[in-house]
Computed example of a mutant assay.
Amino acid sequence: MQTASTAEMCKFAHMDDYQRRIREQVQELLARTGMDATGLARAAGLAPSTLTRFLNDPDVKHSLSGKTMQKLIDAASAGGAPAIPTPPGKSEVRPAPDAPVPVLAEMKRDVPVFGTARGANGDGAFVLDMSEVVDWVRRPPGLIGVRDVYALWVEGDSMEPAISHGDLVYLHPKRPIHPGDRVVIVRREGLEDQHVTMRAYVKQFVRRAGGKVITRQFNPDKEVEFAQDEVVSMHKVLSMADMMGV
């Protein structure tokens, strides 16, 4: 695999951490499939400029949404279009023999998607029902054999542009959480009709301090604090690297 030149690294030095991570993950997909950006975009049903501009334009302001990344992963997993012939004198990038790209049909649809409903208090909260499985989705290659993985359809836009309303996110309750990780926090919020209300929030974990869990959201950009004794659970939203096993 070719490494980025110093000039190229400087070219994208202004990108924020999220953009850099997404760019690296797309480059990994390209390397695993042997495709170029135009071929992968077309295989995913996207306009080629969606990917080429994100990868090549140092002044790009947007990132790729979770929905777009899922389309790229699905296209890469399915094999997509054949790689464009490599020009003479340049090395051809192909998946390693011991790391084949899984065929989409071979990825088991055995990850449960639990029910969610938009909250009414306007703070990005949603009601999470862990007793209701509303769908089953495919298991990414990096999660084969991993227990307790589940998924959610995100409600709300408080984490845009990193995570958008309607995005599918995968979570694991036992993965360690570090500052900067995206998380789903479930908080106990009093009694309603003799039942404890559990509200869930998608945020970025910052730190624990003074009996509080301190998080960040992006839309609008601000810190959000949760009392530690009200937090029922905090599960990591798995990154593309987690899901691809890289």
Rank of each mutant, 00 (worst) to 15 (best):
Gly166Glu: 10
Gly166Met: 09
Asp167Ala: 02
Asp167Asn: 06
Asp167Phe: 03
Asp167Arg: 03
Asp167Lys: 04
Asp167Ile: 03
Leu168Lys: 06
Leu168Thr: 06
Leu168Ile: 07
Leu168Phe: 01
Leu168His: 01
Val169Pro: 05
Val169Lys: 02
Val169Ala: 03
Val169His: 05
Val169Ile: 15
Val169Asp: 03
Val169Glu: 00
Tyr170Glu: 04
Tyr170His: 07
Tyr170Cys: 07
Tyr170Arg: 04
Leu171His: 08
Leu171Val: 06
Leu171Gly: 03
Leu171Pro: 06
Leu171Trp: 08
His172Cys: 08
His172Phe: 02
Pro173Ser: 02
Pro173Ala: 03
Pro173Thr: 03
Lys174Ala: 09
Lys174Phe: 10
Lys174Pro: 00
Lys174Arg: 08
Arg175Leu: 06
Arg175Gly: 00
Pro176Ala: 06
Pro176Ser: 05
Pro176Val: 01
Pro176His: 04
Pro176Asn: 05
Ile177Trp: 02
Ile177Leu: 01
His178Met: 08
His178Pro: 00
His178Lys: 10
His178Gln: 10
His178Gly: 00
Pro179Val: 00
Pro179Cys: 01
Pro179Gln: 00
Pro179Leu: 01
Pro179Ala: 02
Gly180Thr: 07
Gly180Phe: 07
Asp181Arg: 09
Asp181His: 14
Asp181Leu: 08
Asp181Thr: 10
Arg182Phe: 11
Arg182Gln: 14
Arg182Cys: 12
Arg182Ala: 14
Arg182Glu: 11
Val183Ser: 06
Val183Trp: 08
Val183Cys: 10
Val183Tyr: 07
Val184Asn: 05
Val184Cys: 11
Ile185Glu: 00
Ile185Phe: 00
Ile185Tyr: 00
Ile185Asn: 00
Val186Lys: 09
Val186Arg: 15
Val186Asn: 10
Arg187Val: 15
Arg187Gly: 07
Arg188His: 11
Arg188Cys: 06
Arg188Gln: 13
Glu189Val: 14
Glu189Asn: 15
Glu189Phe: 08
Glu189His: 13
Glu189Cys: 13
Glu189Ala: 13
Gly190Thr: 13
Gly190Asn: 13
Gly190Val: 10
Gly190Glu: 10
Leu191Pro: 01
Leu191Asn: 08
Leu191Gln: 12
Glu192Tyr: 13
Glu192Phe: 14
Glu192Gly: 12
Glu192Gln: 14
Glu192Lys: 13
Glu192Val: 14
Asp193Asn: 15
Asp193Val: 12
Asp193Thr: 11
Gln194Thr: 03
Gln194Leu: 07
Gln194Ile: 01
Gln194Val: 02
Gln194Arg: 12
His195Cys: 10
His195Leu: 13
His195Thr: 11
His195Ser: 11
Val196Arg: 10
Val196Ala: 11
Thr197Pro: 01
Thr197Cys: 04
Thr197Trp: 03
Thr197Glu: 12
Thr197Ala: 12
Met198His: 14
Met198Leu: 15
Arg199His: 09
Arg199Trp: 06
Arg199Ile: 09
Arg199Ser: 09
Ala200Leu: 06
Ala200Arg: 05
Ala200Lys: 04
Ala200Asn: 05
